[in-house]
Design a protein around this nucleic acid. Structure first.
Lengths: 207, 207
DNA sequence: AAGCGTATCAAACGCTCGTTTGAATTTCAA
DNA sequence: TTGAAATTCAAACGAGCGTTTGATACGCTT
Protein backbone atom coordinates (compact mmCIF):
# COMPACT_ATOMS: atom_id res chain seq x y z
CA UNK A 1 0.00 0.00 0.00
CA UNK A 2 2.73 2.48 -0.86
CA UNK A 3 0.26 4.77 -2.58
CA UNK A 4 -1.95 4.85 0.48
CA UNK A 5 0.89 5.92 2.73
CA UNK A 6 1.78 8.70 0.36
CA UNK A 7 -1.85 9.75 0.09
CA UNK A 8 -2.03 9.91 3.84
CA UNK A 9 0.74 12.49 3.98
CA UNK A 10 -0.80 14.46 1.11
CA UNK A 11 -4.17 14.56 2.84
CA UNK A 12 -2.67 15.49 6.19
CA UNK A 13 -0.79 18.31 4.49
CA UNK A 14 -3.95 19.58 2.79
CA UNK A 15 -5.88 19.44 6.03
CA UNK A 16 -3.17 21.23 7.99
CA UNK A 17 -2.81 23.79 5.21
CA UNK A 18 -6.52 24.66 5.35
CA UNK A 19 -6.21 25.08 9.10
CA UNK A 20 -3.18 27.33 9.02
CA UNK A 21 -4.20 29.35 5.95
CA UNK A 22 -7.59 30.11 7.51
CA UNK A 23 -6.00 31.10 10.81
CA UNK A 24 -3.04 33.14 9.59
CA UNK A 25 -3.75 34.08 5.98
CA UNK A 26 -1.46 33.18 3.13
CA UNK A 27 1.37 35.52 4.08
CA UNK A 28 1.19 34.69 7.77
CA UNK A 29 1.07 30.94 7.25
CA UNK A 30 4.47 29.24 7.07
CA UNK A 31 5.32 26.03 5.32
CA UNK A 32 7.13 24.92 8.46
CA UNK A 33 4.03 25.30 10.64
CA UNK A 34 1.87 23.44 8.12
CA UNK A 35 4.35 20.56 8.03
CA UNK A 36 4.66 20.55 11.79
CA UNK A 37 0.90 20.14 12.22
CA UNK A 38 0.83 17.47 9.52
CA UNK A 39 3.67 15.59 11.21
CA UNK A 40 5.73 15.83 8.05
CA UNK A 41 9.12 17.09 7.00
CA UNK A 42 9.65 20.66 5.76
CA UNK A 43 10.38 19.37 2.30
CA UNK A 44 7.06 17.52 2.10
CA UNK A 45 5.11 20.49 0.73
CA UNK A 46 7.44 21.01 -2.19
CA UNK A 47 7.68 17.28 -2.84
CA UNK A 48 3.93 16.71 -2.97
CA UNK A 49 2.70 20.03 -4.36
CA UNK A 50 5.66 21.88 -5.84
CA UNK A 51 5.31 25.15 -3.96
CA UNK A 52 3.40 27.00 -1.26
CA UNK A 53 1.32 28.71 -3.95
CA UNK A 54 0.31 25.38 -5.49
CA UNK A 55 -0.57 24.02 -2.05
CA UNK A 56 -2.97 26.92 -1.55
CA UNK A 57 -4.53 26.31 -4.95
CA UNK A 58 -5.06 22.62 -4.12
CA UNK A 59 -6.38 23.41 -0.66
CA UNK A 60 -9.06 25.57 -2.24
CA UNK A 61 -11.92 23.38 -3.33
CA UNK A 62 -15.21 25.02 -2.70
CA UNK A 63 -17.51 22.02 -2.39
CA UNK A 64 -19.02 23.39 0.79
CA UNK A 65 -19.82 26.72 -0.84
CA UNK A 66 -21.44 24.97 -3.80
CA UNK A 67 -23.34 22.76 -1.37
CA UNK A 68 -24.54 25.87 0.43
CA UNK A 69 -26.02 27.27 -2.76
CA UNK A 70 -27.56 23.97 -3.86
CA UNK A 71 -29.27 23.14 -0.59
CA UNK A 72 -30.53 26.70 -0.41
CA UNK A 73 -31.85 26.64 -3.97
CA UNK A 74 -33.70 23.40 -3.23
CA UNK A 75 -35.38 24.86 -0.15
CA UNK A 76 -39.14 24.96 -0.66
CA UNK A 77 -39.73 28.48 0.61
CA UNK A 78 -40.19 32.06 -0.49
CA UNK A 79 -37.03 34.03 -1.40
CA UNK A 80 -37.21 36.05 1.83
CA UNK A 81 -36.98 32.89 3.94
CA UNK A 82 -34.31 31.43 1.69
CA UNK A 83 -32.24 34.58 2.15
CA UNK A 84 -32.50 34.09 5.89
CA UNK A 85 -31.41 30.47 5.60
CA UNK A 86 -28.54 31.43 3.33
CA UNK A 87 -27.26 34.09 5.70
CA UNK A 88 -27.51 31.69 8.63
CA UNK A 89 -25.59 28.89 6.92
CA UNK A 90 -23.02 31.32 5.55
CA UNK A 91 -22.40 32.83 8.99
CA UNK A 92 -21.93 29.39 10.51
CA UNK A 93 -19.35 28.58 7.86
CA UNK A 94 -17.61 31.87 8.56
CA UNK A 95 -17.71 31.93 12.35
CA UNK A 96 -18.27 28.44 13.76
CA UNK A 97 -14.97 27.15 15.11
CA UNK A 98 -16.15 23.59 14.73
CA UNK A 99 -17.02 24.17 11.10
CA UNK A 100 -15.15 21.80 8.86
CA UNK A 101 -15.27 24.16 5.92
CA UNK A 102 -12.23 26.33 6.39
CA UNK A 103 -12.21 27.18 2.68
CA UNK A 104 -14.75 29.86 3.46
CA UNK A 105 -12.48 31.39 6.06
CA UNK A 106 -9.48 31.22 3.76
CA UNK A 107 -11.51 32.98 1.12
CA UNK A 108 -12.56 35.71 3.52
CA UNK A 109 -8.95 36.24 4.56
CA UNK A 110 -7.70 36.57 1.02
CA UNK A 111 -10.27 39.18 0.04
CA UNK A 112 -8.12 42.11 1.00
CA UNK A 113 -4.71 40.62 0.32
CA UNK A 114 -4.36 39.52 -3.28
CA UNK A 115 -2.37 36.32 -3.71
CA UNK A 116 -1.73 34.43 -6.92
CA UNK A 117 -4.81 32.37 -6.05
CA UNK A 118 -7.24 35.29 -5.84
CA UNK A 119 -8.28 35.05 -9.48
CA UNK A 120 -9.13 31.39 -8.97
CA UNK A 121 -11.03 32.16 -5.77
CA UNK A 122 -13.09 34.88 -7.42
CA UNK A 123 -13.82 32.77 -10.48
CA UNK A 124 -14.73 29.51 -8.73
CA UNK A 125 -16.26 30.69 -5.49
CA UNK A 126 -17.02 34.37 -5.02
CA UNK A 127 -18.55 35.11 -8.42
CA UNK A 128 -20.98 32.15 -8.30
CA UNK A 129 -21.90 33.05 -4.74
CA UNK A 130 -22.45 36.67 -5.70
CA UNK A 131 -24.54 35.67 -8.70
CA UNK A 132 -26.66 33.31 -6.65
CA UNK A 133 -27.31 36.02 -4.05
CA UNK A 134 -28.07 38.50 -6.82
CA UNK A 135 -30.72 36.12 -8.19
CA UNK A 136 -32.24 35.72 -4.75
CA UNK A 137 -32.31 39.47 -4.20
CA UNK A 138 -33.80 39.98 -7.65
CA UNK A 139 -36.68 37.70 -6.68
CA UNK A 140 -37.31 39.87 -3.65
CA UNK A 141 -37.02 43.35 -5.14
CA UNK A 142 -38.56 42.64 -8.55
CA UNK A 143 -37.62 44.19 -11.87
CA UNK A 144 -37.93 47.83 -10.91
CA UNK A 145 -34.35 47.98 -9.66
CA UNK A 146 -31.25 48.56 -11.78
CA UNK A 147 -28.46 46.01 -11.89
CA UNK A 148 -26.09 48.48 -10.27
CA UNK A 149 -28.42 48.98 -7.33
CA UNK A 150 -28.94 45.22 -7.15
CA UNK A 151 -25.21 44.60 -6.87
CA UNK A 152 -24.98 47.21 -4.13
CA UNK A 153 -27.67 45.37 -2.19
CA UNK A 154 -25.70 42.14 -2.48
CA UNK A 155 -22.60 43.97 -1.28
CA UNK A 156 -24.57 45.32 1.67
CA UNK A 157 -25.54 41.79 2.69
CA UNK A 158 -22.15 40.14 2.22
CA UNK A 159 -20.43 43.14 3.78
CA UNK A 160 -22.43 42.70 6.97
CA UNK A 161 -21.65 38.97 7.08
CA UNK A 162 -17.94 39.24 6.42
CA UNK A 163 -17.52 42.07 8.93
CA UNK A 164 -18.09 39.73 11.86
CA UNK A 165 -15.37 37.43 10.53
CA UNK A 166 -12.64 39.80 9.42
CA UNK A 167 -13.09 42.27 12.28
CA UNK A 168 -13.17 39.60 14.94
CA UNK A 169 -10.00 40.84 16.68
CA UNK A 170 -11.53 44.32 16.94
CA UNK A 171 -14.95 43.14 18.04
CA UNK A 172 -13.38 41.08 20.79
CA UNK A 173 -11.74 44.22 22.12
CA UNK A 174 -14.91 46.29 21.76
CA UNK A 175 -17.12 43.66 23.40
CA UNK A 176 -14.92 41.35 25.49
CA UNK A 177 -17.92 39.22 26.41
CA UNK A 178 -18.60 38.31 22.76
CA UNK A 179 -18.50 34.58 22.00
CA UNK A 180 -19.36 33.00 18.70
CA UNK A 181 -21.35 30.00 19.90
CA UNK A 182 -24.17 28.48 17.92
CA UNK A 183 -27.00 30.55 19.37
CA UNK A 184 -25.05 33.81 19.07
CA UNK A 185 -24.29 33.09 15.42
CA UNK A 186 -27.97 32.37 14.82
CA UNK A 187 -28.93 35.65 16.47
CA UNK A 188 -26.42 37.64 14.42
CA UNK A 189 -27.62 35.96 11.23
CA UNK A 190 -31.23 36.73 12.07
CA UNK A 191 -30.35 40.38 12.66
CA UNK A 192 -28.51 40.64 9.33
CA UNK A 193 -31.33 38.96 7.44
CA UNK A 194 -34.07 41.11 9.01
CA UNK A 195 -32.04 44.31 8.69
CA UNK A 196 -31.30 43.60 5.06
CA UNK A 197 -34.82 42.51 4.16
CA UNK A 198 -36.16 45.86 5.35
CA UNK A 199 -33.55 47.59 3.24
CA UNK A 200 -34.64 45.53 0.24
CA UNK A 201 -38.38 45.89 0.82
CA UNK A 202 -38.28 49.67 0.96
CA UNK A 203 -35.73 50.15 -1.77
CA UNK A 204 -35.95 53.53 -3.44
CA UNK A 205 -37.92 55.15 -0.65
CA UNK A 206 -36.21 58.18 0.80
CA UNK A 207 -35.61 57.72 4.48
CA UNK B 1 18.71 74.86 11.78
CA UNK B 2 19.96 71.39 12.71
CA UNK B 3 16.72 70.58 14.45
CA UNK B 4 14.73 71.57 11.40
CA UNK B 5 16.71 69.28 9.12
CA UNK B 6 16.22 66.39 11.50
CA UNK B 7 12.55 67.21 11.79
CA UNK B 8 12.31 67.19 8.03
CA UNK B 9 13.56 63.62 7.87
CA UNK B 10 11.25 62.59 10.71
CA UNK B 11 8.25 64.12 8.99
CA UNK B 12 9.15 62.63 5.62
CA UNK B 13 9.46 59.23 7.29
CA UNK B 14 6.06 59.58 8.98
CA UNK B 15 4.44 60.66 5.74
CA UNK B 16 5.99 57.81 3.77
CA UNK B 17 5.09 55.36 6.54
CA UNK B 18 1.41 56.35 6.39
CA UNK B 19 1.49 55.86 2.63
CA UNK B 20 3.10 52.44 2.69
CA UNK B 21 1.22 51.13 5.73
CA UNK B 22 -2.11 52.07 4.17
CA UNK B 23 -1.17 50.46 0.87
CA UNK B 24 0.47 47.26 2.07
CA UNK B 25 -0.61 46.74 5.66
CA UNK B 26 1.84 46.44 8.53
CA UNK B 27 3.21 43.05 7.56
CA UNK B 28 3.46 43.89 3.89
CA UNK B 29 5.13 47.24 4.43
CA UNK B 30 8.92 47.14 4.60
CA UNK B 31 11.21 49.57 6.36
CA UNK B 32 13.32 49.71 3.22
CA UNK B 33 10.40 50.85 1.06
CA UNK B 34 9.38 53.49 3.60
CA UNK B 35 12.92 54.85 3.73
CA UNK B 36 13.21 54.77 -0.05
CA UNK B 37 10.08 56.89 -0.45
CA UNK B 38 11.28 59.25 2.26
CA UNK B 39 14.68 59.58 0.59
CA UNK B 40 16.37 58.38 3.76
CA UNK B 41 18.78 55.66 4.77
CA UNK B 42 17.54 52.25 5.95
CA UNK B 43 18.79 53.00 9.44
CA UNK B 44 16.75 56.19 9.68
CA UNK B 45 13.62 54.49 11.01
CA UNK B 46 15.43 52.87 13.90
CA UNK B 47 17.41 56.03 14.63
CA UNK B 48 14.38 58.31 14.76
CA UNK B 49 11.71 55.96 16.11
CA UNK B 50 13.47 52.92 17.56
CA UNK B 51 11.59 50.24 15.66
CA UNK B 52 9.02 49.56 12.95
CA UNK B 53 6.38 49.00 15.64
CA UNK B 54 7.08 52.38 17.21
CA UNK B 55 6.94 54.03 13.79
CA UNK B 56 3.45 52.63 13.26
CA UNK B 57 2.36 53.87 16.68
CA UNK B 58 3.63 57.38 15.89
CA UNK B 59 2.11 57.35 12.42
CA UNK B 60 -1.29 56.72 13.96
CA UNK B 61 -2.85 59.96 15.02
CA UNK B 62 -6.54 60.06 14.42
CA UNK B 63 -7.22 63.77 14.12
CA UNK B 64 -9.17 63.27 10.92
CA UNK B 65 -11.45 60.70 12.54
CA UNK B 66 -12.07 62.99 15.50
CA UNK B 67 -12.73 65.82 13.06
CA UNK B 68 -15.24 63.62 11.25
CA UNK B 69 -17.21 63.08 14.45
CA UNK B 70 -17.04 66.70 15.56
CA UNK B 71 -18.17 68.23 12.28
CA UNK B 72 -20.94 65.66 12.09
CA UNK B 73 -22.06 66.30 15.66
CA UNK B 74 -22.21 70.04 14.93
CA UNK B 75 -24.37 69.54 11.83
CA UNK B 76 -27.74 71.18 12.36
CA UNK B 77 -29.91 68.35 11.08
CA UNK B 78 -31.99 65.39 12.18
CA UNK B 79 -30.11 62.18 13.08
CA UNK B 80 -31.20 60.48 9.85
CA UNK B 81 -29.53 63.17 7.74
CA UNK B 82 -26.49 63.23 10.00
CA UNK B 83 -26.10 59.47 9.52
CA UNK B 84 -26.09 60.03 5.77
CA UNK B 85 -23.47 62.74 6.06
CA UNK B 86 -21.38 60.55 8.34
CA UNK B 87 -21.45 57.60 5.96
CA UNK B 88 -20.56 59.85 3.02
CA UNK B 89 -17.58 61.45 4.76
CA UNK B 90 -16.43 58.09 6.11
CA UNK B 91 -16.57 56.48 2.68
CA UNK B 92 -14.57 59.31 1.16
CA UNK B 93 -11.90 58.83 3.81
CA UNK B 94 -11.87 55.11 3.10
CA UNK B 95 -11.99 55.10 -0.68
CA UNK B 96 -10.87 58.43 -2.09
CA UNK B 97 -7.35 58.06 -3.42
CA UNK B 98 -6.74 61.75 -3.04
CA UNK B 99 -7.77 61.64 0.58
CA UNK B 100 -5.01 62.90 2.82
CA UNK B 101 -6.18 60.86 5.77
CA UNK B 102 -4.47 57.53 5.29
CA UNK B 103 -4.90 56.77 9.01
CA UNK B 104 -8.38 55.58 8.21
CA UNK B 105 -7.08 53.16 5.62
CA UNK B 106 -4.34 51.92 7.91
CA UNK B 107 -6.95 51.29 10.55
CA UNK B 108 -9.16 49.37 8.14
CA UNK B 109 -6.23 47.23 7.09
CA UNK B 110 -5.29 46.34 10.64
CA UNK B 111 -8.78 45.23 11.61
CA UNK B 112 -8.24 41.63 10.64
CA UNK B 113 -4.53 41.34 11.34
CA UNK B 114 -3.71 42.16 14.93
CA UNK B 115 -0.48 44.05 15.37
CA UNK B 116 0.98 45.41 18.60
CA UNK B 117 -0.77 48.70 17.74
CA UNK B 118 -4.29 47.25 17.51
CA UNK B 119 -5.10 47.93 21.16
CA UNK B 120 -4.15 51.57 20.66
CA UNK B 121 -6.19 51.78 17.45
CA UNK B 122 -9.27 50.33 19.09
CA UNK B 123 -8.94 52.55 22.17
CA UNK B 124 -8.24 55.84 20.42
CA UNK B 125 -10.14 55.51 17.17
CA UNK B 126 -12.52 52.62 16.71
CA UNK B 127 -14.21 52.66 20.09
CA UNK B 128 -15.00 56.42 19.98
CA UNK B 129 -16.22 56.03 16.41
CA UNK B 130 -18.39 53.09 17.36
CA UNK B 131 -19.78 54.94 20.37
CA UNK B 132 -20.57 58.01 18.30
CA UNK B 133 -22.41 55.93 15.72
CA UNK B 134 -24.23 54.08 18.48
CA UNK B 135 -25.47 57.42 19.85
CA UNK B 136 -26.63 58.46 16.42
CA UNK B 137 -28.43 55.16 15.87
CA UNK B 138 -30.00 55.41 19.32
CA UNK B 139 -31.49 58.77 18.37
CA UNK B 140 -33.06 57.14 15.33
CA UNK B 141 -34.41 53.92 16.82
CA UNK B 142 -35.43 55.24 20.21
CA UNK B 143 -35.33 53.45 23.57
CA UNK B 144 -37.28 50.36 22.58
CA UNK B 145 -34.19 48.59 21.33
CA UNK B 146 -31.73 46.64 23.45
CA UNK B 147 -28.05 47.61 23.57
CA UNK B 148 -27.12 44.31 21.94
CA UNK B 149 -29.42 44.95 19.00
CA UNK B 150 -28.13 48.53 18.82
CA UNK B 151 -24.53 47.33 18.54
CA UNK B 152 -25.54 44.93 15.80
CA UNK B 153 -27.06 47.80 13.85
CA UNK B 154 -23.83 49.76 14.15
CA UNK B 155 -21.93 46.69 12.93
CA UNK B 156 -24.31 46.43 9.98
CA UNK B 157 -23.52 49.99 8.97
CA UNK B 158 -19.75 49.88 9.44
CA UNK B 159 -19.64 46.42 7.87
CA UNK B 160 -21.18 47.74 4.68
CA UNK B 161 -18.76 50.68 4.57
CA UNK B 162 -15.60 48.71 5.24
CA UNK B 163 -16.55 46.03 2.72
CA UNK B 164 -15.96 48.37 -0.20
CA UNK B 165 -12.50 49.13 1.12
CA UNK B 166 -11.16 45.78 2.22
CA UNK B 167 -12.71 43.81 -0.62
CA UNK B 168 -11.54 46.20 -3.28
CA UNK B 169 -9.32 43.61 -5.03
CA UNK B 170 -12.27 41.25 -5.28
CA UNK B 171 -14.78 43.89 -6.39
CA UNK B 172 -12.42 44.98 -9.14
CA UNK B 173 -12.43 41.44 -10.47
CA UNK B 174 -16.20 41.08 -10.12
CA UNK B 175 -16.94 44.42 -11.74
CA UNK B 176 -13.91 45.45 -13.83
CA UNK B 177 -15.59 48.73 -14.75
CA UNK B 178 -15.76 49.85 -11.12
CA UNK B 179 -13.95 53.10 -10.33
CA UNK B 180 -13.96 54.91 -7.02
CA UNK B 181 -14.34 58.48 -8.24
CA UNK B 182 -16.13 61.14 -6.24
CA UNK B 183 -19.60 60.62 -7.69
CA UNK B 184 -19.38 56.82 -7.41
CA UNK B 185 -18.37 57.12 -3.75
CA UNK B 186 -21.30 59.46 -3.16
CA UNK B 187 -23.68 57.00 -4.81
CA UNK B 188 -22.37 54.08 -2.76
CA UNK B 189 -22.64 56.13 0.43
CA UNK B 190 -26.22 57.10 -0.40
CA UNK B 191 -27.13 53.48 -0.99
CA UNK B 192 -25.62 52.39 2.33
CA UNK B 193 -27.35 55.19 4.22
CA UNK B 194 -30.77 54.54 2.66
CA UNK B 195 -30.45 50.77 2.96
CA UNK B 196 -29.46 51.05 6.62
CA UNK B 197 -32.08 53.65 7.52
CA UNK B 198 -34.83 51.31 6.32
CA UNK B 199 -33.30 48.57 8.42
CA UNK B 200 -33.32 50.89 11.43
CA UNK B 201 -36.79 52.32 10.85
CA UNK B 202 -38.44 48.93 10.72
CA UNK B 203 -36.41 47.31 13.47
CA UNK B 204 -38.17 44.44 15.14
CA UNK B 205 -40.68 43.93 12.36
CA UNK B 206 -40.57 40.45 10.89
CA UNK B 207 -39.84 40.57 7.20
C1' DA C 1 17.12 -11.64 -1.36
C1' DA C 2 17.96 -8.22 -4.90
C1' DG C 3 16.71 -4.24 -7.31
C1' DC C 4 14.00 -0.17 -8.20
C1' DG C 5 11.01 3.62 -7.73
C1' DT C 6 8.77 6.25 -4.12
C1' DA C 7 8.81 8.79 0.08
C1' DT C 8 11.10 10.92 3.96
C1' DC C 9 14.65 13.22 6.22
C1' DA C 10 18.36 16.52 8.14
C1' DA C 11 20.83 20.01 6.37
C1' DA C 12 21.72 23.83 3.87
C1' DC C 13 20.93 27.41 0.16
C1' DG C 14 19.58 31.99 -1.26
C1' DC C 15 16.81 35.61 -0.19
C1' DT C 16 14.46 39.30 2.45
C1' DC C 17 13.41 41.13 6.58
C1' DG C 18 14.19 44.38 10.87
C1' DT C 19 17.91 45.87 13.17
C1' DT C 20 22.79 47.12 14.54
C1' DT C 21 27.31 48.94 13.90
C1' DG C 22 30.92 52.15 13.44
C1' DA C 23 32.71 55.42 10.58
C1' DA C 24 31.79 59.68 7.94
C1' DT C 25 29.38 63.86 7.65
C1' DT C 26 26.79 67.77 9.16
C1' DT C 27 25.39 71.15 12.53
C1' DC C 28 25.99 74.78 15.60
C1' DA C 29 27.32 76.73 20.03
C1' DA C 30 31.53 78.36 22.22
C1' DT D 1 37.67 78.15 13.89
C1' DT D 2 37.13 74.34 16.75
C1' DG D 3 35.08 70.52 19.05
C1' DA D 4 31.30 67.95 20.65
C1' DA D 5 26.77 66.42 19.63
C1' DA D 6 23.48 65.06 16.23
C1' DT D 7 22.60 62.93 11.97
C1' DT D 8 23.46 60.13 7.88
C1' DC D 9 25.49 56.43 5.59
C1' DA D 10 27.22 51.80 3.57
C1' DA D 11 27.71 47.55 5.28
C1' DA D 12 26.70 43.74 7.75
C1' DC D 13 24.26 40.84 11.34
C1' DG D 14 21.04 37.32 12.74
C1' DA D 15 16.68 35.34 12.13
C1' DG D 16 12.95 33.53 9.36
C1' DC D 17 11.24 32.48 5.05
C1' DG D 18 10.36 29.15 0.74
C1' DT D 19 12.92 26.01 -1.54
C1' DT D 20 16.60 22.55 -2.92
C1' DT D 21 19.73 18.83 -2.23
C1' DG D 22 21.58 14.36 -1.61
C1' DA D 23 21.48 10.69 1.37
C1' DT D 24 18.53 7.36 3.65
C1' DA D 25 14.50 4.38 4.52
C1' DC D 26 10.64 2.14 2.77
C1' DG D 27 7.39 -0.83 -0.15
C1' DC D 28 6.81 -3.77 -3.81
C1' DT D 29 7.91 -6.69 -7.88
C1' DT D 30 10.83 -10.26 -9.64
Amino acid sequence: MTVAVSEQTRERLLSAAREVFSECGFQGATVREICRRAGANVAAVNYHFGSKDALLAEALHFESLKLLQETNAQADACPEVRLGLFVRDFMHMLLDENSTSSQCKIMARELADPTPALDQIVREAIAPLHDYLAGLVREIVGDGVSDIELHRCVHSITGQCLYYHHSHPVLQRLHPELRYDGTEIDAIAKHIADFSLQGLKHLGKQA
